[in-house]
């Protein structure tokens, strides 16, 4: 049976609900205002709809692209490459971070190279990637992996290293071996950092995919953006950006659900 709430508690919960509703209302209002003002400025030709597009033009383009049946191919191509790059970067990055945590010496040897790789603008490697792995899907996935992996290694390694020394000592005092310290302490302890890395990498992997598709591809949202800008079909560019926003938000939502589950 539910406990009867006191009046003060009821008031407090009501205030919480009201705060939440206000935040949601303003979020929607802000978006509606933005779209409304954009449409108004385009309709009154304060901004040129050819260059700036408008919500109604994006909607029409979206409908037309769906009607041709090609849009699903572009969405799926980009989504597939992004998820592949994201997963490879996370798995590989995690394995490398574990290896660097495991061996102090290896970490000391590789530290300067990691710093250099982190500061290198990965897009500069674009033309070389095409020579190394060929154009198309593999080039895009490699670009995505390169952009995500260094940040994964550095963030996860920092999380592993900053694990409380006394907790490690406690494990050792209970005769834990290094595997047990890793799997029962260091990895679960780094879970919040892992979720942050996932969140960062959702955006980064999309950056990698779009970059890769700019450089070399025959399909995908990055390809559509490139195609639209070259053909001066800027509505296609804006529609692709809109779709990128939707897809990245969807992936972010999945990570947030994972985060909520982890916090339970």
């Amino acid at each position: 049976m539910k406990n009867k709430l006191s009046k003060a508690h009821e008031k407090y919960l009501k205030r919480l609900r009201k705060d939440k509703a206000i935040v949601i209302f303003w979020r929607i209002a802000l978006l509606a205002c933005f779209l409304g003002i954009w449409q108004l400025l385009a309709d009154t030709h304060v901004i040129d709809p050819f260059f700036f597009s408008s919500p109604s033009r994006i909607a029409t383009t979206l409908v037309n692209l769906f009607a041709t049946g090609n849009l699903w191919l572009h969405i799926w191509t980009s989504l597939y490459k992004t998820i592949l790059g994201f997963v490879i970067a996370i798995v590989l990055g995690l394995i490398i971070a574990i290896a660097l945590w495991w061996s102090d010496r290896l970490r000391k040897i590789l530290e300067p190279y990691l710093i250099i790789l982190n500061s290198l603008p990965k897009i500069a490697l674009g033309p070389m990637i095409i020579f190394w792995v060929g154009s198309g899907t593999s080039a895009t996935v490699v670009m995505s992996v390169l952009i995500c992996i260094v940040i994964t290694i550095i963030s996860m390694l920092n999380a592993f290293i900053s694990c409380d020394k006394d907790k490690i000592l406690l494990m050792k005092s209970m005769h834990a071996n290094k595997f047990q310290i890793l799997f029962k302490l260091v990895l679960p302890n780094a879970l919040p950092e892992f979720v942050s890395v996932l969140k960062i990498n959702v955006g980064m992997s999309w950056v990698g995919t779009v970059m890769g598709e700019y450089l070399s591809s025959k399909a995908g949202l990055g390809y559509l953006i490139n195609y639209g800008s070259q053909m001066l079909k800027l509505d296609i560019v804006m529609t692709s950006i809109f779709l990128l926003c939707l897809l990245a938000s969807g992936m972010n939502l999945l990570v947030s659900l994972l985060e909520k589950r982890q916090q339970k």
Binding site: K167, L170, A176, K184, L185, P188
Partner: peptide, 22 residues
């Protein structure tokens, strides 16, 4: 130790049996 160093992601039972598990 100085601090209890309980593992926040484990239940009390899982914390108590940590040494046994190891």
């Amino acid at each position: 130790f100085q601090r209890d160093h309980l593992f926040e992601w484990r239940s009390i039972w899982q914390n108590i049996t940590l040494g046994l598990e190891l």
